[in-house]
Amino acid sequence: MALYGYTIGEDRDGNASNGKQLDVYRFLIPTAPTSLITPTRVGTVNIAGTVTNADLEGLGTNPITGRVSAVNEPRAGGTPSTPPTVIRVDNVDQPFAGTSVLPTLTSSDLRRFGFDSGADFGRDYSVSGQPIVLYNISGNDDSKNGSVGSSLYKITTATPGVVSLVDSTPTVTERQGTQPTNLGKFADGLAIDNLNPGRTRALASDFSTADGDGDQLYKVDLLTGQLSAPIVIRNSAGQPLNVDADSGLAFTNVTGSYQQLFALLETGFVYGITGYQDDLNAAGLGLGDGFATATLLGRVNLPNALSGVVDYEGFTIANH
């Protein structure tokens, strides 16, 4: 069984008059370090209208259907005074059949926090039967734009679905998006272990240094939306990784196989991550040794990625 990574670029021409043309690419996940990884364009999502926050930065693979869905970044503007449009686009993998819906924000004063986004599917531990929902972590890494931190949201899989904040005791400022539920903890990638489900079997990623710290992972509590203490990411020499880029995070979730974790940076660099297992296996939001190791596997040769003209921030893995 081959493992394919999926990512979606920003609007390819930046021309709002012809919609928001977001190209979807897939690429084979390498089993050993290589130089360049050649992607294939599988389709284009064209989000028409005046959707200012169109970038589909959160990608996840539904463990029931095996299909990939995407959710857009939280906010494009600097203030959360009006509710931004939330877009979920389903079936963006191969065979491509991308269709978009506009989930409803609830409660009525809900605004999403932050400017960057990561997503993955997982069980909803607040509901009997634990149905599958699309979780979305939204973060801000730059104090120029307000408080640094992250908030976790969930989107039900019905059409169009409902968006809600994951927090046991949300405050007014957290609901309205002016404060994060995890102050000082920025993350923009999300991966949920659906092979071994549990409310803390999820990791979020932070490969940014703009928030004043280094590269790290966090355990995520899918019931309360809280993040653990940081899990420091080191390189193969044992030194802090110290790259600075937006990121996507994904588990392989292959039945009958041991779990693997990968990260994709917006520039196309792919990392395999190991050494996180003792942290993920610790009870609750507790940690093992608080370290993980990232090994560079190669760079996906995505159009205009290395130059920074087009960013590719969403990432998920589908099994074909």
Rank of each mutant, 00 (worst) to 15 (best):
D246V: 13
E10F: 13
A16K: 13
T65S: 15
L152S: 07
A97T: 11
G275P: 07
R112P: 00
G146L: 03
N194S: 11
V92E: 04
H320G: 07
A16Q: 12
F291D: 01
F27E: 02
D221H: 04
P74I: 07
S247N: 14
V254G: 00
K144V: 15
L285A: 08
N53H: 04
A191T: 05
S128T: 15
K154H: 07
T157G: 03
L306F: 15
D244A: 11
L265C: 02
G225A: 06
Y135P: 09
L190R: 08
N301P: 03
M1T: 08
T99M: 09
S69L: 03
V42D: 04
G275R: 11
G314Y: 12
L265H: 02
L134N: 06
T99Q: 13
A187N: 10
F291P: 00
T40I: 11
A70F: 01
S143F: 14
G272Y: 10
L222G: 10
P170H: 08
R299N: 12
L222D: 11
L306Q: 15
A158M: 06
V86L: 07
T200D: 11
K219Q: 11
T38N: 10
N253H: 00
L152E: 05
G98D: 01
P39V: 04
N319W: 05
V300C: 10
D215H: 01
D13T: 14
V232Y: 00
T173Q: 13
A294K: 08
Q94S: 14
V92L: 04
A292L: 04
A294I: 10
D13S: 11
L287C: 05
E313F: 07
V166A: 06
N182I: 03
D246M: 14
F113P: 02
M1P: 00
L165P: 00
L280H: 03
D188G: 11
V220G: 09
G161F: 12
Y271P: 01
T252H: 01
L22G: 00
G78K: 08
R111A: 01
L165W: 02
S108Y: 02
S247R: 06
A245I: 01
V309F: 12
D289I: 03
V42K: 07
P63M: 02
Y153C: 01
T7P: 09
D116K: 14
S257Q: 15
H320E: 09
T316C: 14
L297T: 09
K185N: 06
N46L: 13
Y6L: 13
V172T: 15
L222M: 12
F96D: 10
T171R: 05
F186L: 06
D11E: 05
G308W: 08
S208F: 03
F96K: 10
I47C: 00
G248M: 09
G288T: 10
D124R: 02
P170S: 06
